[in-house]
Design a protein around this nucleic acid. Structure first.
Lengths: 137, 137
DNA sequence: GTAGCTGCAAACTCTTTGCAACTCT
DNA sequence: AGAGTTGCAAAGAGTTTGCAGCTAC
């Protein structure tokens, strides 16, 4: 049983064939797949998986904090398995997503919220850029 | 002629009654209204304004960099007139949006992008929190 | 006069949901 | 056995668009 399956079972979810398939797709993903992406990849393993189940499963996993739903201003959602804390830089020319961490940034966020009189519950930081080497001017 | 009307005229847009109405609504807004909000407020001034025109106008203004479209993970968009550069802290209990600026943060973002080999084109930072005074534990 | 703009309604995209059949536990 | 899960199709929400008529310039 995979680690993801383990966590789902502990949350009381039945381990159906469709769920195993979707969890495998998520576990294997090295990118930030859209619902459609997950659906396509799942179908390659088990043609019977429906997109409704993909939507339902991803919503549950988000609730359980097993995955995170992102909205990178593209008009649809992308998902990512929760792992270490990090942020994203989206390459505007290729759509590639680069992950990064920065301790200084973490501290600064907390401080800004505190100074405004708030307890930081969640946050979102995304950078959008283009490769320096491919810069044309 | 208002400042916003001025900027639109310079961009070559015809100043129709509907556009003036929508620009007035935007100029008067002190919050971050949704399309529906803008539509409702515009209708109070001119009942003939349609929601299609509101959508079309806001899209154009976004293209022209006169307003910014935000997606605060609510399932719809909110708009804001471009002004000074700042970020948002969303109060999770009331939905209120607090604006803030932080120079240190600006520098840090640039540096992170540069270190990753990117030229920063755009970015997004949102904090989500709850009032410290109303914190229950 | 005419290119651009508008309202209306239909169409679109992404996502959610009701339901009857099915399946883990 | 039975609660949870599924596929399907229909419904929802937000947004976009084709079109015929209208309007600022």
């Amino acid at each position: 049983m995979s680690d993801l399956e383990q966590r789902c079972a502990e949350a009381g979810l039945k381990m159906t064939g469709q769920r195993k398939t979707i969890l495998k797709v998520l576990g294997d993903a090295t990118d930030h797949p859209s619902v459609e992406d997950v659906y396509e990849r799942a179908k390659e393993i088990d043609k019977s998986v429906s997109i409704a189940t993909v939507y339902r499963t991803l919503s549950m996993l988000d609730e359980l904090d097993i995955v995170t739903r992102h909205e990178f201003q593209e008009g649809y959602s992308r998902y990512e398995v929760n792992d270490d804390h990090h942020h994203h830089l989206v390459d505007l020319e290729t759509g590639a997503v680069v992950e990064f961490q920065n301790e200084e940034l973490e501290l600064l966020k907390e401080k800004i919220a505190r100074d405004l009189g708030y307890e930081l519950v969640d946050h979102r930081l995304e950078l959008y850029g283009k490769k320096l080497s491919s810069k044309k001017k």
